[in-house]
């Protein structure tokens, strides 16, 4: 790997806020900004969790509306509908 390529990688990491670098004389020191990494991971995982929760609710909605007129529901899927509403109450 060339020095230029290494510097390019460092620049990308710095732009993302994940890495900080300092130049002292001829030496460049890089450090991982662990706090940023953690918060970035958490932020993105929250978005993913949000979509997962919505898709859970979509499953409940599809189960609740199964067999309704105009639902376009066709036979074989019905037995697989989760029977969870009784326990989850109220």
């Amino acid at each position: 790997m060339s020095l230029a390529a290494v510097l390019q990688h460092v620049q990308v990491l710095e732009t993302s806020g994940l890495v900080r670098s300092r130049k002292l004389g001829r030496t460049r020191t890089c450090s991982l900004n662990a706090g940023s990494l953690r918060s970035a991971e958490r932020w993105i995982s929250e978005r993913r969790t949000f979509v997962e929760r919505r898709l859970d609710r979509l499953g409940e909605y599809l189960a609740d509306t199964a067999g309704q007129p105009g639902s376009g529901h066709t036979g074989p899927a019905a037995p697989h509908a989760p029977a969870r509403n009784q326990e989850d109450g109220p």
């Binding site: 993105i44 376009g72 529901h73 899927a77």
Partner: peptide, 19 residues
């Protein structure tokens, strides 16, 4: 700053694609 991410979630539903 900009951070890029891709996530993929797969779910199976006992309902037709049209529903």
């Amino acid at each position: 700053s900009v951070l890029h991410d891709t996530f993929v979630i797969e779910r199976a539903y006992p309902a037709s694609p049209s529903r």
